[in-house]
Write a protein that binds this DNA or RNA. Structure first.
Length: 959
RNA sequence: GCCGGGAUGGUGGAAUCGGUAGACACGCAAGACUUAAAAUCUUGUGGGGGCAACCCCGUGCGGGUUCAAGUCCCGCUCCUGGUACCA
């Protein structure tokens, strides 16, 4: 009757049953897997990071009883974007190595700091008016927190910041020492300028063999004494290692500053990509060319990646050749040229001068005056970018004059050509069209003579290079290239018209920057000549300015500072307005880390004696010709002057590859707010637009989030495929502007720092470039959970037994130890992670929970996943951190197996694989193979024709 | 143009001295447990053929050396990093 009521009863009954079931489930769930005993990475990572920080466990102290190990990462520039997953890659690798070295008993120094002077903070200051120091400090805080979340074993007490006055005080101090030094070629090292002054007073500069400017005048002792102070200072500037001179520089109008050669790429600034022009300016430079040879030959001793060494060699660009003089016909002028191929001297059919060469105006004849002037004007107006991008256009002008080739007294025309560079060699070349491609093209274009002097087929367009027998060359005929060169140089020297010469491509490094956010140069000007401020006035603090821009008349931002003058006691003098370049602070930071709080010296001598130089340096190869070269230069200088005991800063280096981002794109129909899905975009006229990867899952766009992303997209419409919007994708550099940045904090939040560390290592070889891709991250996360379970029983309680391990378990463990050690020594971290996975899988299969196995296992995994291993280590009752444990010794005995074999017969051959003890000789392996039962049976009493033995691997027997 | 580095399954990548190519992981497929999902576990997974044991092919392309080649040699193709009127 009451159907409704009945149904309600049944319904309630069913509901009750379901509720009971539900609670049973939950009760069981909670009982079987107590929450606390699961791998709770959040809690234990927090716990161990706090412990490492408060115990100062990674604090390094000088300890002569122990061997030191200094591992260093290239310190980051703290940008506003924060750390992305690519940054820590190298840090994780070095962290693993240092944790391993600690386990081996080394005294490890592993510091971190910030290269905190730089352009982005200044650009931001220009836009917002906020002082760069404030932005920089905020960024550093964020970086430090992010780094700490990853659980690095850095000694944070050693932190340095290049923009901190207590640090840049010493950058300025080193600058002063460079200013006060010159390079003595006889002793082949830097010496104090005071020594040079003494020599000038005694003998003038006749006997001085020092690196100096080309136009240095010669003078006697009396001359020197009669010079006024100003003149003396000007002369000394020709010798100082840090010096002021009028130079052609890379001027970047958009940035309002000068850039060094390595900061310019293809005519554009490396940072910002603004055009760069050549301009003559009074600039500070560093005489790095004095060290060219030592920088070159020092490379041989370094354990660096070969490509980086090669890049430095090319950058230094040492070429061996000859310098010689051509007399101009009916004229007093002489033209000096540099050539690497003096053997082709008889093939010279014209000379070419750079348009900037001062001789041009003297040599040009009346008839040619107009043509040449026009040409030079044209060449000047062509910007460097045009000149570089347009290599194929051949241009030049004849001066009307002739020079005489001293080898055969022939007259050759003198041309002006912009393919000759003013800045290299002498700014003039002897052209041999038959054997140089550029000369050939030029001669063809202007119909000049082409004279072959090396045997071979010229019609094929073959030029010099490999050499060959000399012809058409008088006394050089029949000789090979090297002999001819030697004979040519001998001829030059005998007739005093030239000599053998070494020419370098590398130029002195421009040191001034017309910027605010850098170290002030500790120099004031009196009578227009620079003097150092007194050492006791260091640091020379950056002054406050109202704006961070250059002034209207083009003086640098420091020109805005009030009272930017120096009081000497005799008067008040203006201070230098430029600041130092970015590379100044980073060229010596590796020494400061040893003794960062020292206020009396840049580093204490005894402390530096102990730590020496960096044993392992990890960073990107993009610094090959910048930071890595300047650091070597400064170290050699500091060594010469006796302040440090090493003349190379980085013994061994590894270049980690960049982790690239994966960008997503949407396609907007031009002029509308309509977006077309990836596979349909070809039917429309679209432009691609980067879209934040956070709005995209498996390349499918979340339309609602996309509309909310930016105001202008709120009314966006879409053309979908199968009801979805599919985005395009591309691998690019990770950057904020491409919306493809993956933040390590997000990964840590989801999986923990140990998983992030393992995964970055597992991704592939350290050196390789690879896109970030989280597809495989579950694998390493699962591995950690399995590892955790190995130390716990089914109920989730911690449980390891004290029973003695069996041979099988020991074998598994020792295989992992061996592999871990080999991989760490070879920096192949990725295969190491694999071997841990195998080990844990096998131990799980063996149901191994023995302390004697699990304790060493925690130690060998700890460099990679330190948090979880520390936790397991302490759960096993150890009261000291794993840092104090020692790396377990691999025992070969557990790997030796009884010989077993499985033959495969192929075409009358038998192949036997035998696992044998590692110490057997070839003969022993051979005889064991022949004694083998299976082999005996197969041979049926025949004697094998051939037995090929590959130790420990495979035995091939041919009948 | 010149100087480096590289090319291996659907994917990331292993393979140390020339010695069973594809370890390990992802993904995928099937199964177990579960009301279900998640998690976990088991099995399979280079291609082709066969019910099966097993056979054939296979490391960018073309040759070569070797009992044996991803690996060494010669000649290419493509990708990638650096560098460029440097005499």
């Amino acid at each position: 009757m009451n159907r409704h009521g009945l149904r309600a009863d049944i319904f309630e009954f069913v509901l009750l049953i379901r509720l009971i079931l539900y609670f049973c489930n939950h009760y069981q769930y909670n009982r079987n897997i107590p929450q606390m005993a699961e791998y709770n990475f959040r809690e234990l990572e927090k716990k161990w990071q706090a412990y490492w920080e408060s115990s100062r466990i990674f604090n390094a102290k000088v300890d002569p009883a122990r061997t030191k190990f200094y591992a260093l990462d290239m310190f980051p520039y703290p940008s506003g974007a924060g750390l992305h997953v690519g940054h820590p890659l190298g840090y994780i690798a070095s962290d693993i190595i240092t944790r391993y070295k600690r386990l081996q008993g080394y005294n490890v120094l592993h510091p971190m700091g910030y290269d905190s002077f730089g352009l982005p903070a200044e650009q931001y200051a220009i836009q917002t008016g906020q002082h760069p120091a404030i932005t920089t400090e905020e960024n550093i805080k964020r970086y430090t927190q992010q780094l700490k979340n990853i659980g690095f074993a850095f000694d944070w007490d050693k932190e340095v910041q290049t923009s901190d006055p207590s640090y840049y005080k010493w950058t300025q101090w080193i600058f002063m020492q460079l200013f006060d030094s010159y390079y003595d070629k006889k002793e082949n090292k830097a010496r104090p300028v005071d020594d040079l002054i003494l020599e000038f007073q005694a003998n003038g500069n006749q006997d001085v063999d020092a690196v100096c400017d080309e136009d240095t005048p010669s003078f006697s002792s009396d001359d020197w004494k009669s010079f006024p102070a100003k003149r003396q200072q000007e002369i000394l500037l020709h010798y100082r290692l840090a010096f002021l001179s009028e130079t052609t520089v890379n001027w970047c109008p958009a940035l309002g500053t000068v850039l060094s050669n390595d900061e310019v790429k293809d005519g554009f600034s490396e940072r910002g990509g603004h055009p760069v022009v050549r301009k003559k300016m009074m600039q500070w430079s560093m005489r790095i060319t004095a060290y060219a040879d030592r920088l070159l030959y020092g490379l041989d001793e370094l354990e660096w990646p070969e490509p980086v060494k090669e890049m430095q060699r090319n950058w230094i660009g040492r070429s061996l050749g000859a310098e010689m003089v051509f007399q101009v016909k009916d004229h007093a002028a002489k033209i000096k040229v540099f050539t690497t191929r003096i053997d082709t001297i008889f093939g010279v059919t014209y000379l070419a001068l750079a348009p900037e060469n001062e001789l041009v105006s003297q040599l040009v004849t009346k008839e040619q005056e107009k043509t040449v002037e026009e040409y030079i004007q044209n060449a000047k107006n062509r910007s460097d970018i045009e000149r570089m991008s347009d290599v194929k256009t051949i241009s030049g002008a004849f001066t009307g004059s002739y020079a005489i080739n001293p080898f055969n007294n022939e007259e050759v025309p003198i041309w002006v050509a912009d393919y000759v560079l003013a800045g290299y060699g002498t700014g003039a070349v002897m052209a041999v069209p038959a054997h140089d491609e550029r000369d050939y093209n030029f001669a063809r274009h202007f119909g000049l003579e082409i004279r072959q002097v090396i045997e071979g087929d010229l019609t094929a367009g073959a030029f010099a290079g490999k050499g060959g027998t000399i012809m058409n060359s008088d006394f050089l005929n029949g000789l090979e290239m090297q002999e001819a060169m030697d004979k040519g140089i001998a001829f030059l020297e005998k007739n005093k018209i030239g000599k053998g010469k070494i020419q370098y491509r590398m130029r002195d490094a421009i040191f001034s920057r017309q910027r605010y956010w850098g170290e002030p140069i500790p120099v004031y000007f009196k009578d227009g000549v620079p003097y150092l401020i007194s050492e006791k006035d260091l640091p020379l603090l950056l002054p406050e300015v109202d704006k961070y821009l250059p002034t209207e008349d083009g003086t640098p931002p420091l020109g805005r500072a009030k009272n930017w003058t120096y009081e000497t006691g005799e008067g008040e003098y203006p201070l230098e307005l430029s600041t130092m370049p970015g590379w100044a602070g980073s060229s010596w930071y590796f020494f400061r880390y040893m003794d960062p709080l020292n206020n009396a010296e840049f580093v204490n001598k005894k402390i530096q004696d102990y730590w020496g130089s960096v044993d392992l340096y990890i960073g990107g190869s993009e610094h090959a010709t910048g930071h890595l070269l300047y650091s070597r230069f400064w170290t050699k200088f500091l060594y010469d002057r006796g302040w440090v005991n090493v003349d190379e800063p980085f013994k061994k280096m590894i270049n980690q590859g960049m982790i690239q981002g994966r960008s997503n794109f949407v396609y907007r129909v031009k002029g509308t707010n309509e977006f077309v899905s990836y596979n349909l975009k070809d039917d429309y006229d679209t432009t691609a637009m980067h879209v934040d990867i956070k709005l995209v899952y498996n390349d499918q766009l979340d339309l609602d989030k996309f509309r909310k992303w930016r105001k202008d997209l709120s009314d966006a419409t879409f053309v979908l495929e199968n009801g979805k919007y599919i985005c395009g994708a591309e691998v690019e550099k990770m950057s904020k502007s491409k919306y493809n940045v993956v933040n390590p904090d997000d990964v840590i939040e989801r999986y923990g720092a140990d998983t992030l560390r393992l995964y970055e290592m597992f991704l592939g070889p350290l050196e390789q470039f690879k896109p970030w891709n989280t597809n495989g991250i579950d694998g390493v996360f699962k591995f950690l959970k399995k590892l955790w379970r190995l130390y716990h029983d089914q109920e989730g309680n911690f449980s390891v037994s004290l029973n003695a391990p069996g041979k099988e378990e020991l074998k598994v463990l020792h295989r992992a130890i061996k592999k871990a050690q080999e991989d760490l020594d070879n920096f192949s971290f990725n295969t190491s992670v694999s071997s841990f996975m195998i080990c844990v899988n096998e131990l799980t299969a063996l149901k191994c929970n023995k302390k004697d196995i699990l304790e060493p296992l925690a130690i060998i995994i700890s460099p990679y996943a330190p948090h979880i291993c520390e936790e397991l280590w302490s759960l096993m009752g150890n009261d000291r951190s794993i840092v104090f444990a020692s790396f377990p010794q691999f025992k070969e005995e557990f790997l030796v197996e009884e010989a077993h074999e499985y033959p495969i017969s192929v075409n009358g051959k038998i192949r036997v694989k035998m696992s044998l003890p590692l110490n057997l000789s070839r003969e022993e392996i051979e005889s064991r193979a022949l004694e083998n039962e299976v082999v005996q049976k197969w041979l049926e009493g025949n004697t094998p024709k051939k037995v090929i033995v590959v130790p420990q691997k495979i035995v091939n027997i041919v009948v």
